[in-house]
Amino acid sequence: MHIDRYAYCNRLRRIHPAEKVCLAGTALLVSLVGAPPVAPLLVLAVMAGVTVLWAGIPWRYYLRLVAVGSGFLVLGLPAVALKVGPEGEGLLWGVRVGALFLGLDRAGVWQALYLLARCLGALSGLYFLALTTPVTEILHLLRRLGLPGLLLELMGLVYRYLFVLLETAGSVYVSQTARGGYASYGRALRSLGLLVSVLFVRAHHRALMLFTALSARGYTGSLDVVGPAHRPSWKYRLAVGCLALGLLASWVLTGGGGHVRAHP
């Protein structure tokens, strides 16, 4: 939930969301097609710098986020790096399992590391967007890009009421705990079951109330709203443009497509 808080109060809040999406998109593109490991790692460095230094996200928090992302990646790497074959030659390390060898070879290790670099680079682009751009502005942008209104309305409502649901769940949980609802494993299971069923009932009730309240303001089937007008700032536009160009240049300078080196 901290991500959401930072999205609303960071130093890049005033930048037009489209510009931020462009920068994040460029980072993603260069990470995915640039020559590994230089291009993706460069993207990681640049985007981390922008997020921490420019947007003002605390670096400890940023590191924790990157650690969470890397954790998932590292779990997936053995599947890429490990090789199974009938021969044990050329392996850096291997064990014999029946008639087969399970082991690591040079190409596999490099491939895994390249993959890690690419993913971290892409992740940094995504984190930049998530930490600097509120969901509401992204939704607004998607609307302008012509995504179906119904889909966006649902996304917006889910986002808004997620917080109400969490708050309700939190207060029910506290009141259950106060009466010993989670004192033992068995009681905890029972209480949790009750909590979930109560949430369903409350959510339904709230939906009815919301419909009434919306009708009172002239709701006739579509939740159209108007956002505040963004003033284009040439200073920001220039800065974002330079960053994006820099990233693209790093792709070209490191030799464009890196697939050749990834599979020697």
Partner: peptide, 17 residues
């Protein structure tokens, strides 16, 4: 009553209608 995550957009709902 508040269905929108952004205050500005929330207030704009009535006038848009």
């Amino acid at each position: 009553q508040l269905f929108c995550a952004s205050v500005f957009e929330e207030v704009s709902f009535g006038p848009v209608n």
